[in-house]
């Protein structure tokens, strides 16, 4: 239900983290949605997303953009991630004009999303808020690691992979970009933001993780 909804971090960092996606409704506009998913991805690619993907197909770091486009022919959902609100806003405007008739959802800072929608003449329909993490929070690693791993809502990016990547960067075996892409690969839906991950990895290094 919620897989782009619990991304953690500072406001400054979250301002570089946008997911714009299209999702068909079963029994309503689900049949034959594939070409609309492809059309949405064509629109997204105009604005240089830092990741794209769809579950069961993969993300742009474990497969190719062409294969994702091809796979979308039979898909009902597609995700595009941006490191800049202006790019997300441009896609939202394009999606409104294209009028594909399938639900479009944005995950980002609510105040910023509201400003974009006002500019685009869009009245938001529904919103979902996170009330945070409850329960045995002492089981969790430091926030520097969670800020990275919560970018995969399905929990497929492990805490230990972050630790290993910081270790590899510290030893000079990997640069930040390669480490961030390595972290992006397990997130099969393509909602992980590797550009943001680079900055967050630097923060982990500063914190001695």
């Amino acid at each position: 239900m919620t897989h782009t909804n619990h991304r953690q971090g500072t406001l400054e960092s979250l301002s570089k983290d946008w997911i714009v996606f299209m999702y068909a409704a079963r029994g309503i506009n689900h049949e034959g949605a594939g070409p609309k998913m492809q059309a949405f991805l064509h629109l997204a690619l105009r604005h240089n997303p830092v990741n794209i993907g769809s579950p069961t197909i993969g993300n742009m770091y474990d497969t190719t953009t062409d294969k994702i486009m091809e796979g979308l022919a039979g898909a009902t959902k597609v995700y595009a991630v941006f490191d800049d609100g202006a790019k997300a806003a441009a896609l939202i405007m394009d999606a409104k004009e294209a009028n594909l008739g399938v639900s479009v959802i944005v995950s980002g800072i609510f105040e910023e999303v509201e400003k974009i929608c006002q500019t685009a003449g869009i009245k938001r329909h529904t919103a979902q808020c996170s009330l945070g993490v409850w329960g045995k929070t002492d089981h969790l690693p430091p926030p520097e690691i969670l800020d990275i791993t919560t970018m995969c809502g399905h929990g497929l990016v492990s805490f230990n992979l972050v630790r290993r990547m910081t270790d590899e960067v510290r030893k000079g075996n990997l640069n930040l970009e390669k480490a961030a892409v390595t972290l992006a690969k397990p997130c099969i839906c393509g909602v992980f933001n590797p550009e943001r991950a680079e900055e967050l990895l630097e923060r982990c290094l500063s914190a001695g993780i």
Binding site: H6, G101, A127
Partner: peptide
């Protein structure tokens, strides 16, 4: 333009994260 879910949470003493998910209302019908 207000969000009842946010009001309910705040009135119950629960804090809300600044980021989340918005459905833009572009689906048809």
């Amino acid at each position: 333009g207000s969000l009842p879910a946010a009001r309910v949470a705040r009135e119950g003493g629960f804090s809300i994260r600044p980021n989340g998910k918005s459905n833009l209302g572009l689906g048809l019908p």
